[in-house]
């Protein structure tokens, strides 16, 4: 069974990067173009893990986490924050809202998969083969 990722990011480039990496790594990939759409489609998609950007129109990443963790949806799935903000307060704020972890942009395939592995256990991916760097 593939692990299903819901990626919420307003940047098409980032969505495409995520899609390429995740689909190649054997994840099922669903995306939303902003926070509002991501929250709205959450229950239909029923992802195993959510990756969300912070700076987005309509509803930002903090809002996404708050709504997903809130009593309405009461989501228990891991939520990874995808952001260029490496500032500690940014991470702290995301975590207070209920984020599970973070991926710092720009990300590479390996750190993305490693982050997913730590929150979902999904490890059906051998970086050594795909990256072509080793062995």
């Amino acid at each position: 069974m593939k692990t299903k990722v819901l990626a919420i990011d307003d940047s098409r480039t980032i969505r495409n990067l995520l899609a390429a990496t995740l689909e190649e790594a054997g994840f099922e990939y669903v995306s939303a173009v902003d926070g509002r759409e991501g929250v709205d489609m959450y229950e239909d998609v029923a992802p195993d893990v959510v990756i969300t950007d912070i700076n987005m129109p309509n509803l930002d990443g903090f809002g996404v986490i708050e709504e997903l963790r809130g009593t309405g949806i009461n989501s228990k799935v891991p939520i990874l924050v995808l952001t260029t903000e490496s500032a500690p307060e940014m991470k702290a704020r995301a975590r207070n809202a209920g984020a599970t972890g973070w991926i710092t942009k720009p990300f590479d395939d390996a750190s993305l998969i490693f982050a997913l592995k730590r929150v979902t256990g999904a490890a059906a991916y051998d970086v050594r083969i795909h990256s072509g760097y080793l062995l």
């Binding site: 307003d10 480039t13 260029t84 942009k105 990300f107």
Partner: peptide, 9 residues
């Protein structure tokens, strides 16, 4: 911000 994020990648 998005330009920066993409460019970084």
């Amino acid at each position: 911000h998005s330009i920066k994020g993409g460019a970084g990648a």
